[in-house]
Every structure is written in C-alpha cells, then in structure tokens.
Write a protein that binds this DNA or RNA. Structure first.
Lengths: 231, 231
DNA sequence: TACAAGATCTTGGTACGCCATAATATGGCA
DNA sequence: TGCCATATTATGGCGTACCAAGATCTTGTA
C-alpha cells in the first residue's frame, strides 16, 4: 500500500475487477453455498449461458477452481463439483489447527495489547451475530477473527492457505455453528485464545487455538456421520 | 488404482495428459528452474509461439500459475513471474515447519517400523546423490522423503499444501543444498527425525522436523541477504 | 526542442469452428 | 428376436479471428 505518493491517495478505489474475477466469485459462491452440489457436472456451455460470459472465461474460471480444489476434472467427462469426504474434512481442520495455533502463539509472543483488543472486538461481533441468529455474520466475523490473528503478525501467506482450505469446508462450517451450544462454546474457546495472547502465554494460545479447531472438527465429523454420504 | 479388473492390467499407460497440462508443466518448470526470471513479463502471444499452442491454452496456464502464486498479474500490464521477497520466503519455510513437524509427530505416534525404514531409504538416496554431486537428485529425494512422511499417515492435503509452497522457493532450495556443510548437516538433521519416529517420540520428531526446516530457512535468509535483491 | 497525434503492443473479452471421444440411439442382418 | 455395427449427440480440447481499451512508443510538426 505504498501508493500514497503525490495525490494518489485521492484515487478512486475502482473495482478494477475483470469479468473473469466476477465470474470466478459467482461460481465459487454458487458452489460454496450449495447452489451447485458436490458431484454436479459443470458443463462449460451451460455455465456460459447462466453466467452470460464466453467459454474462454468459463474455462479459466473452472481451471482456477480446480486448482483451489473446489472442482474436480474427470478425464473425458469434464468438470464436476468436488466431493469432500470425511477424511479430507478432518485433514483440513487439522491443518487449520496447526496454522492457527502457530499464529496464536506468535501473537502471544508479541506482547502487544492491541492484538488482544482487536481480537476481542471480532469476538464481540461474533457473539452479537449469534444473538441476532445471523449465521452469515457469525461466519464472516469468525473469519475476521482469524484474519486478525494472522495479519497482526504479518503472516499473509499462512492466512491465504487457511482461507483456501476453508472455502472447501464452508458448508460444514455453516452446519457446525448451528449446533447446539456452539453459540456459547465457540466464543468461549475463542476467548481462551485471546486471554492467553493477552497474558503472553504462547503455548496456551497455541493449545487454545488447537482446541477450538478440534472442537469444530469433532462436530463436523458428527454432522458428517449423520448423513449416509456427504455427496 | 482399482483398474485391475479383467485384462485391464494390460492397458497401455497412456499419458492422457492434455496439451494444457503439458504446457502448464513446461511453463512451471521454466519458472522454477530459472529460465524465466522473477519480474520477466510473460507475454501471451510470445508464449504461444514458444510453446506452440494457442492463446486459449496459454491463458488457462497463466491463470493456473497465478493461483499457485508463481505468476502475478499487473493490472493493465499483464502477467509477470512473481517476485519472492525475504519475508515471504521466511513465511513459507515457517509453514512447512509447522506441517512437516505435524506429519513427523503423527508418524512417530504410529509406532510402525515400516515408516522409519521407508524414510531411511530416502535418506540413503539423498546421501548418495550428495556423494555424486547430483543436486537435482538431492532435491528430488528430499521431496520424496517428505512425501513419504505425509503419505505414510495419509495426509495428502497437507502434502499438497507443502508441495504448492515448495515450488515457490525452489530456487532457494537449490541454493541452500549447495551450501557448505549442508551435505552432512541436512542428512544428519533428517536422521534425527527418523530416529525420533523410530523411537515413537512424537515431540522429538516434531522438534527435529522444525529444526531441519529452520536450518534451511536460516541458510536461505543468508543467501538472500547476499544479493542486493532477490529479483 | 517540446508536445500532441497517431501507431503499436498487449491484455480482456467474444464468437465461432473443428476435432476427438464417450455415450446413446438406431437400424440392419443372422 | 437378438446382437453387433453404425449414426447421432453431447461435451471437452483446441485453434483462429476479431474487437475494445489501456499503456507505451514514434513521429511529425510548430
């Protein structure tokens, strides 16, 4: 963000989004919130019609989503929405635990009260969203909580990895947060992270972050076991 | 690999690679081993000519590499080979440490001698490559060592993340392994990982893996400091 | 010399067409 | 009637041509 030279600060924050990025977001969102279900075929020409863009764009978007793991490409059959099985979900939660734990430890070791304050603010937003039964808000503010955790110690690459993995389990997340007691247990676990960070207790912050993810993972496994198949 | 029904085992192992995948590999390799340098512009039509494929393919390849972080897209200017700065390299090593440490711990907790044996085999290959001054071999077998670490405990997603990040620091890796004493220190550190795994010492394996990556990271930082800029 | 007009380069995006392959429908022949 | 060979269709893989718009380089002229 070193574009504040001269009068450039005035520069209108133009969207600058290319059509491809718009389309990418649309399709990703459609997959993430279930408009396309796992296993659904994503026929290029159909998507062209639905999105109102050319096949070139659609193909680039599909390639991108493929590299994100949201779309799988069956040889000689074409792209489908990727399945997420039990085990992969578990792995993703595990990785998040390792990275979020790492970030929490680093935050604690900074001994900077501003970090805990910022996290507390996100935490308040989460609780407030729970009170309003605004589940989309819960997800958004939870993301924001973790983003703060990573960005406060300048770990944007790890944050990128976590973010990439998180979209793949988004539907699970939206189910886990609706679970009974999650509205008190979740924030309580996150408060433990913040407390440890405020105390400068790196190991405690690490453990608390791991515990929080482990809790979410356990609920996700239970949810998954409820269905015959997650497809 | 469940295609062993009937006479299907006879089936010729056809490449099945699409032109796009071939081109993707070519360009990625060209970037990774320095044929294209960071900051170089990747002009679509030039790539078409050099690769002998159409713009359609080239564009999809560039999108893919962009999502891998190897290519950056300057608005209104086009794609260039992404720069890797000091700090990002450090972050990548840090993430690898967290994930490889996690995998090492899981391996140790399996108490399965076959794991340590497989790792020992890779380690022997690495030492042998060092003796032959076959640096490409060192890199390949080191990858294979870590792949074993992850695959033995069925953590293919974490392996994918590590792999994705590793290509971005490949040129650093090829410099760190050429450093003085790395031919004895590197394998020694990896042997410590294997020993801890063989003893079933999860914490020890975790620490040993972290130490190994930390060592590589320190060397990389030193190498980077040698140059004015890594560009 | 300095500046403005125009040419050029390059990407974003579109449209269309061709080919290969897989699946399915169809039809002819024993 | 039953089965095999041949269309047909659907779809992805790939290529070409084209246009618009922004950035940059050239060049001609005052």
């Amino acid at each position: 963000m070193n574009d504040d030279a001269h009068g450039a600060a005035i520069r209108v924050e133009r969207p600058a989004k290319t059509l491809r990025e718009l389309a990418l977001d649309k399709v990703r969102e459609a997959i993430v919130n279930g408009y396309f279900r796992p296993g659904d075929r994503l026929v290029e020409r159909d998507l062209c019609a639905q999105l109102g863009v050319s096949r070139t764009i659609v193909r680039e978007v599909l390639r991108h989503l493929e590299s994100e793991g949201l779309v799988a490409n069956l040889p000689n059959k074409g792209p489908i929405v990727a399945h997420l099985n039990h085990d992969e979900a578990k792995q993703i939660y595990e990785i998040r635990g390792a990275l979020e734990g790492m970030a929490a430890r680093l935050c604690a070791e900074q001994n900077n009260p501003a970090i805990a304050d910022a996290l507390d603010k996100s935490l308040e937003d989460i609780k407030s969203s729970y009170r309003d039964k605004d589940m989309a808000g819960v997800l958004a503010h939870t993301s924001s909580f973790y983003q703060t955790l990573f960005s406060m110690v300048d770990r944007h690459i790890a944050w990128g990895v976590v973010n990439l993995l998180t979209v793949r389990i988004n539907h699970l997340r939206s189910m886990t947060i609706k679970t009974q007691n999650r509205d008190v247990q979740g924030p309580a676990q996150m408060a433990r992270i913040v407390d440890a960070i405020r105390r400068g207790d790196g190991e405690g912050a690490y453990q608390a972050a791991m515990d929080h993810v482990a809790g979410a993972s356990a609920i996700a496994q239970a949810v998954l076991s409820g269905h015959e198949r997650i497809d």
